[in-house]
Design a protein around this nucleic acid. Structure first.
Lengths: 202, 202
DNA sequence: GGACTGACAGATTTCAATATCTGTCAGCCG
DNA sequence: CGGCTGACAGATATTGAAATCTGTCAGTCC
C-alpha cells in the first residue's frame, strides 16, 4: 500500500518514536509499527539499530551546526564576536536543557552512544571557532602561530559551558559570572599567546 | 574486649573495607565485622552510612590538599609556577587513574555522593590557585582586579584536566598537547585580563 | 550507668525466570 | 526479480520474590 519505504521516512519515524518513548525505550519494532511495516524492512535500509540512531543524530546535529555558523557583524571586534558566539552556544545548550529537558536528554544520550559522533561534532565546532580566530588574526586583534591548535584550546578551556557532563552545573545562579570570567580570560589570552609546541615540529 | 572503639579506628577499618570491596559492595556490616563489633556500635559514632563515608572521604581529600600546597621556587616565574602546579594536579589525577584505577574510582564515587564534599574540595583548590595568582599580581607578572574570581576562572578553564567527568579523555595520546595549549592560553590571559563585572557591584 | 549487643521493620539489592528485542533469512507477493 | 514479511536464535531487558542491608532501640553486661 501507500508509498515506497524510504530511508528518510524511517529517519522521521525514528525521531518521532525517540521523542515519544525516549532513547531507553525506543525500539526498532516501535519504528516499524509507526510506519506500518515489519521491522525486517527497516533493516533493509539500516544495517543495525546503532546505525539508525546514529543517522538520526547526525541529521539533528547538522541542523545545530547550521545554526551555529558564526556571523561577523561589522560593528563588533572579533573578540566580541567570539564572546557572542560562545554565549549563543552556551544559551542553546542551557535553554535546550531547561526548556525541553526530555528531547535534550535524548540527543545527549544518542550523541554519547557512538565514538564517531562526538568527534564529528567537535571537529565541526572547533572548525567554527578557528574561523573566528582566523578573522582575529587577520585584523591583528589576535596573535597565534597555530590557529587550529588555538581554536582547540579555546574549545577545551570553555568545556564547562558546552560539555554535557557539566549540564547539571548550568543551573547554578553564578554560572553566567563564571562564563564571563573564563571567556574574558581566554580572549585576553588570544590577544597575546604563543602555542608552546603544536602537533608539527620545527 | 581489647581497646575502646574509637571513631579513628572505624575510619581506618572503613577505608580498608572500601579498598577491598569497592564503594558499591562495602557495607556497614562489613566494617563492623572487620572491627569485631556489632554494626550497631558503628552507629554510635556515625549517625548514618553516608556520614561515615563522607568522613573517610574528607580525610583522604585533606591528604591530597596537603600534597598540593604550591611551592614557590625562586628561579621560576609565577607563570611557570602555575603551569607546574596545574601539571602536578593533572599528573596526580591521571596517574591515580591509570596506576591504581580501583582506589581512584572508589574515591571518585565517594566524592560524588555528597554535594558538600566537591564544594569543599573545589573551594580549597581554587584557594590554592588564588595564592599563586596573588603572588603573580605582587610581582606584576599578572594583572587582575579580582584574584578570587580569576582563580575560579583558571580552575574552570582547566576543568578538562582535573574534573573526573573527563577522566576517559586523559588516555588520549594528544592530551598533553591540549593541556599545554590551554595552560599557555590561560597564562597569556593572566598577563592582561580584567574580569568584566565580578560578584560585587560598582 | 554507659558502651555494646542483637533482634527487628522498612528500604534496598540480588537473582533467576520470563518476556521482549535485535538481527537473519527463507519464502511470499506484486 | 526485488522489496517485503514473519518466524526464529541468541542477546538483552523486565519483573517480582527472596535475601541483605540500614538504622533503631530495648535490654545485657561489666
Amino acid at each position: 500500500m501507500a508509498e515506497a519505504l524510504t530511508s528518510e521516512a524511517i529517519l522521521a519515524a525514528t525521531e518521532e518514536v525517540l521523542r515519544r518513548y525516549g532513547p531507553a525505550k525506543a525500539t526498532v519494532v516501535d519504528v516499524a509499527k509507526a510506519l506500518g511495516v515489519s521491522h525486517g524492512s527497516v533493516y533493509r535500509h539500516f544495517a543495525t539499530k546503532a546505525a539508525l540512531r546514529e543517522a538520526v543524530t547526525r541529521r539533528w546535529l547538522d541542523a545545530v551546526h547550521e545554526q551555529m555558523t558564526p556571523r561577523f557583524d561589522q560593528g563588533l571586534t572579533v573578540g566580541e564576536t567570539l564572546k557572542t558566539w560562545l554565549q549563543q552556544l552556551f544559551d542553546k545548550k542551557r535553554h535546550g536543557h531547561t526548556e525541553d529537558p526530555e528531547l535534550f536528554a535524548t540527543f545527549q544520550v544518542l550523541v554519547k552512544e557512538s565514538k564517531a559522533i562526538p568527534e564529528y561534532h567537535i571537529r565541526h565546532m572547533v572548525g567554527l571557532v578557528a574561523r573566528i580566530i582566523s578573522a582575529g588574526v587577520e585584523t591583528q586583534e589576535f596573535v597565534t602561530d597555530d590557529v587550529a591548535a588555538t581554536a582547540k584550546a579555546v574549545w577545551d578551556a570553555t568545556e564547562k559551558f558546552h560539555h554535557p557532563a557539566h549540564a547539571q552545573e548550568w543551573g547554578d545562579p553564578h554560572i553566567q559570572d563564571a562564563f564571563d570570567a573564563v571567556v574574558s580570560l581566554v580572549i585576553a589570552g588570544l590577544r597575546y599567546n604563543r602555542t608552546p609546541s603544536a602537533a608539527g615540529d620545527a
